[in-house]
Every structure is written in C-alpha cells, then in structure tokens.
C-alpha cells in the first residue's frame, strides 16, 4: 500500500527539498520533489494517495495559488503548508481554504512526520469517499427521472402511500419504482439508500 502512497514536496529551495526527502525516505515514505508549483501540477495525478508538503513562498505560482488550483480540480490530496517567519497570515489563509495543517520552519522532524502520517491517513479516507461517491454517481446516473423522484421522496422519509398520492400514481407502481431504485443503487436497506443520497447531495 505504501508503494501507492507518495509524499509530494514543492519548494523552490534545493536544500529544503533534498533534506526533506532524506528525512521522509528514512521512514520508508515514497517522496517526489518539485521545485515549482507548475512542474508539480503538470506531472502529478492530484487524486494520488499521500500528501503535499508545500512552501507558501515561491517565485512564480506560490503555495496559495497552487492550493486554489487543487481545490478547483477537486483534488483529495491533503496539503501541509510550510511557512517561514513572517508568513503567518498566508498560513492562516491556507488553513481557512481547507489546508490540512501548517508547519513553521524551522520544523523538527518527528513533528513533521506526525503531520505527514496524519495527512496520509486522511488522504486515503478522502480517496475512499471519493471513489464511493463516484460509484454512487454512476448508479444514480442509471435511474430514470421517475426513479430519482421516488428516491428523493424516500430519502425525505415519506411513506409509499404519500408518495403515490403526491405523484398521482398507484401505490403499486411506487413499490415497483422503489424496488428498482434499491436495485440500481445497490442499497441493501432504506437507511443505506438515505446515506447514499446524502453522499450524492455533498457532491452536487
């Protein structure tokens, strides 16, 4: 599994990149380094498991801008912001935009490693959620408009009878739609269907 996990390092400072690689590789983490935000975006699948260690202050595209680009591409990659002495306001902004954490230079190794591991765990989790969501969306896409309508009404907790009256169709027909929905969405219970529904709602 670790082979699929990568720690990406984006920092314009060679020695910082090199020393971080030295640090993280010593605990058997796969490390990829980039000297600029642009080169990172070009060569990395942003839905890769792992985390991104990002220096906020860089020539060209800076850390915050890279973060915006990743959000735009619905990346799940957790970002650990590296800040210098006077960059606290930038770090605060990065956090409010959803960065996983920030670490101030000069950092100590164990602390950074702790954050990196937490980020990787989070990354896996996000990636899982994303996969599920993607599956759900594929199932949802197979529902007819009528079936989607019935699914929405089931999710809002309405009984078959109520649905039948509201839709102006027979109760039997509602039951047929309901069965189809459960089947297509691969839900084993109404509770699971409601969970899927909420998952879908998050993404839309």
């Amino acid at each position: 599994m670790n082979a699929e996990v990568s720690v990406f390092i984006v920092d314009d400072d060679d020695s910082v990149r090199h020393s971080l690689r030295w640090l993280l590789e010593s605990v058997k983490l796969r490390v990829e380094t980039f000297s600029s935000a642009e080169s990172f975006l070009q060569s990395v699948d942003t839905d890769h498991a792992g985390c991104l260690i990002l220096d906020v202050r860089m020539p060209g595209m800076n850390g915050l801008e890279l973060q915006q680009a990743l959000i735009a591409s619905t990346s799940t990659l957790p970002i650990i912001i590296l800040t210098g002495h006077g960059d606290v306001p930038m770090a605060v902004r990065a956090m409010s935009e959803g960065a996983f954490d920030f670490v101030q230079k000069p950092f100590n190794g164990p602390q950074l490693l702790d954050r990196v591991e937490a980020a990787i765990t989070r990354s896996k989790q996000l990636l899982e959620e994303k996969k599920t969501r993607n599956g759900l969306q594929a199932c949802y896409a197979m529902l007819t408009p009528r079936e989607r309508q019935v699914m929405n009404m089931i999710a809002s907790g309405k009984a078959n009878k109520v649905i039948a009256i509201e839709m102006g169709i027979g109760q039997r027909t509602v039951e047929v739609h309901r069965h189809r929905v459960m089947e297509k969405m691969q839900a084993h219970s109404v509770a699971e269907l409601i969970h899927f529904y909420l998952q879908l709602q998050k993404n839309i």
Binding site: S19, L82, G109, L112
Partner: peptide, 10 residues
C-alpha cells in the same frame, strides 16, 4: 536551519 534539522533527524 530546516534543512539541517531534516538531515539530522533523517
């Protein structure tokens, strides 16, 4: 300083 720290810890 960060680099030194990383090298040493690694």
């Amino acid at each position: 300083l960060s680099a030194i720290n990383s090298y040493a810890q690694g």
